[in-house]
Design a protein around this nucleic acid. Structure first.
Lengths: 233, 233
DNA sequence: CAGTGGTCTAGACCACTGG
DNA sequence: CAGTGGTCTAGACCACTGG
């Protein structure tokens, strides 16, 4: 399976933008110029430019051309962060406590989310992450064994599931849902909060090139964790 | 200027999904079926389906077909979204109730956030936003009069503060903080929740070319609003 | 005017899924 | 096997921008 030509052209332009050869406001090659340069049809050259336009990297104007956008797109701001890294960046001590590490049979809903057969074996881990000995995150994770066969053999005291998975199945895609919730007594006691404390919950599904890697639910006590972001044009 | 055919086909399918004729998991017409039905080339039919796929409404699988996604896509995280637009995009009715519209003197903390002198006049608005007559957002906003002089003259039943400010002081920069909180009795009663309900709170500060425009606190009942995002490499 | 991107056609070959 | 979506071609007409 070879790389599609429109991806090659897209990467060619994206690389030049990242390398600073094309800077914001610069005109990039037109569809016709790319046709000649890469010996492809206009539809293929067009697809590369259109894809970059859809991602916000280019602004295209009929009659004028395609130009590098002045503002980096903001969609990339929601990074998949490793909680251990976050804690360390704040200069605090990090530790983890493993609650569950086991195989489970996928329910039909889980199977659908991970794109496996119902009843298939999944890896299931539940880990509480601590910052300065205070619980900051409850991580409940289901992993597709086909994409991370050695998941249950890891020592998650020394490497977070996030870090391990990033290594064996590099991320290509992720979706997030962020909401405010309450938790049951089991989770509340592990997080050292009570069941009336509002929690920030992130549900995250991650893909690598080979398919859906994992679905995770990350629950944070509302008074100990928040998300932030900043963007400029 | 007539509507492009791929948009017509796209709307045709989108309408059926919104109307419940196609429900999550249903197969929608294939590219070939749409070709015949609309008398277009496959590339045009394809573009309609691909566009819906890119928006997350369809899941397409070679050999199988195109299926309505099981989970409706949700608003992109950290984008500065207009709540009225969001509600309308979900096909629901939007309305607003204005609680407060007044001038206030900046406290030292507010002055620092907006980069004005302490005691300077600020505009203050509090608005509850409704989706299908149900409160979904409490918006408490302070505005720098120097950058939006006519703020208090607006009819926020017909234009949201967000939309008005975007017009008079286009955004160049924004910062966000997202957390899970509880609210006091005053806000709870306006949101038709009780003080034990977890809320998703977004604190947002926005800049335009001329300076800091506004600081806003947006509070959402946890069971009625969430943030989402999706990214691909 | 030549050049740009926007839309569209009528074909093609491919890998893949299911029956 | 017929059907699906993924990629690609070599054309076409259009509205628009600039010189």
């Amino acid at each position: 399976m070879s790389t599609p030509r429109f991806i090659i052209i897209k990467n060619f332009i994206e690389d030049k933008i990242n390398a600073g050869e094309f800077t914001p406001g610069d005109r990039v090659p037109s569809e016709n110029e790319l046709c000649q340069q890469f010996s492809v049809s206009r539809m293929t050259a067009r697809r590369a430019l259109q894809s970059l336009n859809d991602e916000g990297l280019l602004i295209r104007t009929p009659g004028l051309g395609s130009f590098v956008a002045k503002h980096r797109p903001i969609s990339t701001l929601l990074e998949v962060r490793n909680i251990a890294d976050e804690v360390h960046e704040r200069g605090n001590s990090y530790s983890a406590k493993i609650i569950t590490m086991t195989e489970v049979e996928a329910t039909s809903q889980q199977a659908a989310m991970l794109n496996v057969a119902a009843g298939a074996i999944l890896y299931h881990s539940v880990i509480v992450h601590f910052e300065e000995e205070i619980p900051v995150q409850w991580e409940d994770r289901l992993v597709n064994p086909a994409l991370a066969a050695d998941y249950l053999l890891q020592d998650f005291n020394t490497i977070t599931p996030n870090a391990y998975l990033s290594k064996v199945a590099p991320l290509t895609e992720a979706s997030h849902k962020i909401e405010a919730t309450l938790v049951d007594q089991t989770i509340a006691s592990k997080l050292h909060i009570d069941t009336r404390s509002p929690c920030l919950q992130i549900s995250r599904r991650t893909w690598s090139a080979a398919g859906i890697v994992s679905i995770a639910t990350l629950i944070h006590p509302g008074d100990r964790y928040c998300l932030g972001g900043h963007w400029k044009i």
